[in-house]
Amino acid sequence: MTVLEVKNLNVAFHTESGRLEALKQVSFSVPANRSVGVVGESGCGKSTLINAILGLLADNGEITSGEIIFEGDQDLARLGPTAMRGLRGQSIATVFQDPMGALNPVLSVGRQMRDIQYRSGLSKRDKDARSVAMLRKVRIPDPESRLTQFPHEFSGGMKQRIAIAMALMMEPALLIADEPTTALDATLEVATIELLKDLQRDIGCSVLFISHHLGVIAELCDEMIVMYAGEVVESGTTREIFHDARHPYTQKLLACDPARLSQRVARLPTIAGTLPDLRRRPSGCVFQPRCDRADAQCLTTPPNAPIGGSHIAHCWHADVSLGAMSA
């Protein structure tokens, strides 16, 4: 079953200097019990995508067309604010980048964990028991006594684990994680990924994981989509994309990651040029102004070229494999 299916989603913002197309024809799906990664650099539309799914677009933004089908029957793009509020936190939960910002600094952790269970109808004692069980699941030592403590009494890694515990408390069908490990150190980052993997299996939810850290996506996700300037340029299984990326942007992005270099190089690879102005999208392929492979054909909209399996690259020249790159 598919938990989330986004079909031809277009989102635009109305700004003083004109209409900005933030997402263009975005399509992908999140199957049940799977983790899907969204990769892309700042400004590629990752956050807009999450906000569109959660119904939290800013006032000047709107979904101009497309569908966001949740659990097969509800179209989130057309759901009213009340119905949407009923889903958020219950069926769709979120973990954000900054754990301190996600927790209320003046309320104890126990109080906050009790508050999110307001719809469960349980007694206070039962709610606290569930909180303790959840904190234990995210490996907070001595959870009973921790309930009375405040967020500032926990370390950064612990706060993020508490935020994860709170997100998973209502056993949502979909967890959206927006750069949850970016603020953490390498050892804690790895521990958090391992934890998310275990919890996902345990609770049986799907995860939509947003990150610009390629290594984290490679470790956590089964499938991934690569976004550039508001478009999905490539999608497939994590293995397909890391081993045989076909879109020139994905290839360049992977090559830029210093983690791929096993020794010191004189110059680190970069991607020449800058993101296009989304108020004036380039015609045809959105990456064409920065692409080495661009030719006359690229001035027309590229096809979704099937590479094999679920792997698709939105490119006229998707036949160029850089297999040697990963070797």
Partner: peptide, 9 residues
């Protein structure tokens, strides 16, 4: 602990 961009590693 350094995460590396290789799903098969």
């Amino acid at each position: 602990a350094n995460p590396e961009p290789d799903p098969d590693r």
